[in-house]
């Protein structure tokens, strides 16, 4: 299972490399050293939260501001852990949840939920490895060698993550009308929040919560019991 996890983690790792590469560039341009940038990535493993975090630090904001912004941006992980806890194998508890829970990200969560009826702890461990390495090395590369990598390569790395999302969504939406409905609602809401100017103030982390909660709640009300295993 650990091997399957590692294999499934490769596309996430590739995508993370490019996303954290740009995080590294941004951190250094905000006055952080390369090792500070790498330390932030290794300790947090989250994109939106880290961007917000270095903004607070660079502006010398308060510790409370730091805590609240991280809480609001990352609260979606709480929703995901509850979802995940419903699908984990019996052995995946206690200390394993304490340790492996660190690796819950949007992408790792989605891939884990998509794989099997039951999420094995060995699979989840394997799944985390490559994304973690990719996230760390990408930050290192971005903060050290900055703009050396050609744009066309960054673009290609950047879409890998989305390609993976699509590979998860489309087959399930094809099989289940309920999933198709949830996806459609979420996409419409997400576009509204993105394009309508009055929603400008909503952070991207919070926008995901609004879309996901509304679409899933509607889906649950209209199609209870139709979710994929």
């Amino acid at each position: 299972m650990i091997k399957k996890g590692i294999r499934d983690g490769i596309p996430i790792g590739l995508g993370y490399f490019s996303v954290s590469f740009s995080f590294g560039i941004l951190a250094v341009s905000n006055g952080f050293t390369w090792w500070e940038a790498v330390l932030i990535s290794m300790a947090n493993l989250t994109s939106a939260g880290q961007y917000a975090g270095i903004t607070v630090m660079a502006a010398a904001g308060g510790l409370l501001e730091m805590a609240i912004s991280q809480f609001v941006i990352n609260i979606r992980y709480a929703l995901m852990s509850v979802s995940l806890s419903q699908k984990t194998e019996e052995k995946f508890k206690g200390i394993y949840r304490l340790i492996l829970g660190f690796g819950i990200t949007d992408e790792i969560f989605a891939v884990a939920m998509n794989t099997a009826k039951e999420i094995k702890r060995s699979y989840f461990f394997g799944l985390i490895i490559i994304p973690y390495i990719g996230w760390t090395l990408g930050t290192l590369a971005g903060s050290v060698c900055g703009n050396i990598m050609p744009d066309v390569v960054c673009d290609a790395l950047g879409i890998a993550l989305y390609g993976m999302f699509i590979a998860i969504i489309v087959p399930s939406a094809r099989r289940s009308k309920a999933v198709l409905f949830v996806v459609a609602v979420s996409v419409v809401l997400s576009c509204m929040l993105y394009y309508i100017p009055i929603f400008d103030k909503i952070s991207s982390g919070f926008a995901i919560i609004i879309c996901a909660v509304t679409a899933s709640a509607l889906g649950a009300l209209l199609f209870p019991g139709s979710e994929p295993d």
Binding site: D106, F109, F165, I169, S172, V183, V213, G219
Partner: peptide
């Protein structure tokens, strides 16, 4: 439904 909604919005 949460994972699909999250991915779609992202």
């Amino acid at each position: 439904y949460i994972p699909y909604a999250v991915l779609a919005a992202m």
